[in-house]
């Protein structure tokens, strides 16, 4: 689901930029591994490394030891994994030092440092939806960059 989330952000990136925002993606990997992973995934925005989970913890994204069992009990999880597998994104076990229990999250933060939007995943397939992301971007009163236009 990590790769699915990245793919979603890559897809949405032109709209995000047009709305006057950028993206920073935080990973559990060490800095060098994060750089390699993001290059492999053709990530066009900044990737950051948080192997000690200081930022994950500060943003309330706790690693839940029951997350795998809880997620496995949801049909939506299997549907999401099947959808990703059909795209060639087979789920792999986490690399050493990265917990499978860690859930993802997405926040929109304005340039004053205020949280404008927050989504904390409740299970592994619970990513921000394209519609929610589009609505969150549209609700921000941010002037698009010169020459850019909103697609919505």
């Amino acid at each position: 689901m990590c790769k699915a989330f990245l793919a979603q952000l890559r897809r949405a990136y032109p709209d995000i930029q047009a709305a006057g925002l950028d993206v920073a993606a935080v990973t559990l990997g060490q800095p060098e591994a994060t750089g390699k992973f993001c290059r492999t995934q053709n990530v066009p925005f900044t990737c950051l490394s948080d192997p000690e989970r200081a930022a994950y913890t500060a943003y309330g994204l706790l690693a839940n030891p029951n997350v795998i069992a809880q997620s496995a009990a949801r049909p939506s999880t299997w549907l999401a994994f099947t959808r990703e597998a059909l795209k060639g994104n087979l789920n792999q076990p986490p690399p050493r030092g990265q917990s499978a229990s860690q859930l993802s999250g997405a926040f929109i933060i304005d340039s004053n440092g205020t949280v404008e939007y927050a989504h904390r995943s409740q299970h592994v397939a619970d990513l921000i939806s394209d519609e929610d992301l589009a609505a969150a971007l549209a609700s921000l009163a941010i002037t698009p960059a010169v020459g850019a236009s909103r697609s919505r």
Binding site: G20, L21, A24, A25, P94, A106
Partner: peptide, 20 residues
Amino acid sequence: FLADYWRDQPIVLAFLRHFG
């Protein structure tokens, strides 16, 4: 600092799961 990335423009701050 994370603030280095939102100081100049708003950001989507995305936290990923593991690399698998």
